[in-house]
């Protein structure tokens, strides 16, 4: 279930913005977006996303128990506990395969595309 955020749904807006910026003689650039990943029913949804570098990824815990987002690479990085009803945000900088360290069967990944400038 792969989503390429910032392209399909927002293409008209991006084109419009690009046209306006171009008209002013400035270089067009990708406007950072907010991408939401829902935590519910013991799943990250969508489990795989592609974003541009600098986009904000928001994890929203709509479940009934506490979760976290932990990097697969040896738990070197973790969000810390995200209680039910809370959110956690990160700025996309590099590819991040992740899982929930409390419930290791829950997995996901964020693929980061280079900035479009």
């Amino acid at each position: 279930m792969k989503n390429l955020y910032g392209v399909n749904r927002l293409l008209p807006i991006i084109l419009l913005a690009g046209g306006m910026v171009g008209g002013c003689g400035l270089k067009s650039a990708h406007t950072p977006l907010r991408v939401e990943i829902t935590i519910q029913q013991m799943q990250f949804t969508p489990s795989e996303v592609e974003v541009y570098m600098g986009d904000t990824v928001v994890f929203v815990n709509k479940g009934i128990v506490t979760h976290d987002v932990t990097g697969e690479a040896g738990e070197a990085w973790t969000s810390g506990p995200i209680p039910a009803g809370h959110t956690f945000e990160l700025i996309a900088k590099e590819n991040l395969p992740y899982y929930c360290s409390f419930h290791p069967t829950m997995k996901g990944s964020i693929s980061v595309l280079p900035k479009n400038d």
Partner: peptide, 11 residues
């Protein structure tokens, strides 16, 4: 509650 129970079982 069922998905949590199933995740616990798998864990």
């Amino acid at each position: 509650v069922l998905p949590a129970l199933k995740a616990h079982l798998e864990h």
